[in-house]
């Protein structure tokens, strides 16, 4: 009796310890984000105060108002940047996913001579830091005349994401037993139907996570975008943040406000896809 009770208390304490530990870790991770959100509602004075002001005395929407305001009054073409970011990120994600699905499927299902070499080669391309590519890319793009275009940016991001999407999606298709597609073929599907009706839905969770990954990479990318975009034609939100810097001053409040606008779509998307991410689709159809 007694022992059972002390056991239970121990278990409770352990659970509580876990909870506190996780809370601490989470707050460490979330603090910068929350700070950004908080600062976007505060005047510069308070942001710059030393020692820092933790509890804001006043919250207002001034930074947002200014940002959407006229060019002269600290305004920034937010909507254009947003649109550029969205078009470039979404398009490059879709393409990277399609290529990743084709490539990942091929790697997972077919015997290809030199497969592992090709695979390692793909990974190595990711080992090159993006910035190192910016000068060669700049020259190349300059010659081709695709600097400051959506097309150019999409191309860069597809190239950046494809190795990863192939690698991730290959891993997910490997977990889908090949008998599933075979069963579908026997059930009357063509090879193509078997893929779309069976293998794709089963691997969907994995493909969705590869998609989020690719989208966030493009959405947040700054180093290359800062070199390859220069006007309203193609400037993305991360590059747009630099509009708040001038020779002598930094408009932290405005920057944070734009950063918040950047975070929101990423958050929304993650929430939407989250249910696919939780690998609820366990491979229960197969006993292995």
């Amino acid at each position: 009796m007694d022992q059972g009770q002390s056991h239970r208390i121990r278990r409770r304490l352990l659970a509580l310890g876990h909870f506190i530990g996780l809370l601490l870790a989470m707050s460490l991770i979330c603090l910068p984000g929350l700070w950004v959100v908080l600062n976007s509602f505060r005047p510069t004075v308070e942001i710059m105060a030393k020692p820092p002001v933790w509890i804001p005395s006043e919250l207002n929407l001034d930074n947002y108002r200014a940002m959407f305001g006229g060019i002269g009054e600290g305004g920034v073409p937010v909507l254009t940047y947003f649109w550029n970011s969205l078009v470039i990120s979404l398009t490059s994600t879709v393409i990277a996913l399609l290529v990743g699905m084709a490539g990942g499927y091929a790697f997972a299902r077919y015997r290809i001579p030199g497969k592992s070499a090709v695979f390692v080669g793909l990974m190595v391309t990711r080992a090159v830091p993006g910035v190192a590519l910016s000068l060669p890319l700049f020259i190349l793009y300059g010659r081709l005349g695709i600097i400051d275009t959506h097309f150019g940016m999409i191309l860069v991001y597809v190239a950046l994401n494809v190795p990863f999407t192939i690698w991730l999606i290959d891993g997910f298709f490997r977990q889908v037993p090949k008998e599933l597609a075979e069963a579908a073929e026997i059930d009357g599907c063509t090879r193509w139907q078997a893929f779309w009706k069976v293998e794709f839905p089963v691997a969907r969770a994995g493909i969705a996570s590869a998609g989020i990954f690719a989208f966030l990479t493009s959405w947040n990318e700054y180093a290359l975008a800062s070199q390859l975009t220069r006007s309203l034609n193609s400037k993305t939100m991360p590059v747009g943040l630099m509009d708040f810097t001038s020779q002598f001053t930094l408009n932290w409040g405005g920057m944070c406000a734009l950063a918040v606008l950047m975070i929101i779509p990423a958050l929304v998307l993650t929430f939407l896809v989250q249910k696919h991410l939780i690998a609820g689709l366990t491979f229960g159809g197969v006993k292995g």
Partner: peptide, 11 residues
Amino acid sequence: MVFQNYALYPH
């Protein structure tokens, strides 16, 4: 055909 691992469509 019935497969050794059943190959039921899990979704």
